[in-house]
Design a protein around this nucleic acid. Structure first.
Lengths: 135, 135
DNA sequence: CTAAAACCTGACGTTGACGTCAGAGGCAAG
DNA sequence: CTTGCCTCTGACGTCAACGTCAGGTTTTAG
């Protein structure tokens, strides 16, 4: 498939796909006229790339680890990197969990009918119950 | 305390503290000569700011929600924002967890002695056991 | 009193993952 | 054939959270 279709399928921009290639994350066959052609498997690969970007990995790190993750093989060096990144992600999850719990506490407390949240007059309890029921 | 000490205590740079003030996240008393003076409580506030930055909130959003989080009060609007951010963080935690599990699978599989990871010759099982024992 | 250290404002520099635009070709339909 | 859409390369633009530097004032240690 060509780049536009891959972009549509994987939900990223055409520019992003070219950028991934530039960073050595995604290879493409070229037609005689220079157009990129991707196999079906490219969609999965793009998903994986996005996944790793979302976890805070840089292009360089992704380029280093992507083959390992796809093939499930690793050298001692790459295994060290993998472990380091996993630990970093673990720490990030822990931090995010604390942050979420903190926000939850604010939401629950300030949203509770008994909490005296009526610090701006004119709020009726119905709207508050609505928000509280969000969870 | 002055800005240098606050920076040292909270582990952020002086520049960052000035930036926070510029963004309306952190206020400071000024001495006659214009130097910033912070109360003890500023350290906690900075920690909270860092926490929210780390969760992916922008300066603008933090400025909006910081008073709510500190005082545990909220208007209906801010509660909606709080809920939205919490949900976003929840989703991010879920995505990170999936990513971590994927990395874990690679580490465990490629690190297992029986996995045939010896695809580069010359590795002894002892080093592998070391890495495996990391967790 | 003096020199070092800390602080001030203002302004330009950095980084990464793209967005966007320009100008030029390629490709199936009518 | 030509119209309209897709693609190409190359290059500059963006945005946020600071880093860094310049040039000057203030505070502190000796």
């Amino acid at each position: 498939m060509r780049i536009g279709e891959l972009a549509a399928r994987s939900g990223v921009s055409v520019r992003a796909l070219r950028y991934y290639e530039e960073q050595g994350l995604l290879e493409a066959d070229r037609s005689g006229s220079g157009q990129r052609h991707y196999p079906e498997s490219a969609a999965d690969r793009v998903q994986l790339i996005q996944m790793l970007y979302a976890a805070g990995l840089s292009s360089r790190t992704i380029a280093e680890l992507l083959p390992c993750v796809e093939a499930k093989v690793s050298t001692p060096e790459s295994r060290a990197r993998l472990t380091a990144e996993r630990d970093r992600i673990d720490a990030q999850i822990a931090a995010l969990t604390r942050t979420r719990d903190r926000l939850d506490a604010v939401i629950l407390f300030s949203g509770s009918p008994a909490s005296g949240c009526r610090w701006i007059a004119g709020q009726d309890a119905a709207a508050q119950a609505n928000h509280t029921a969000t969870r």
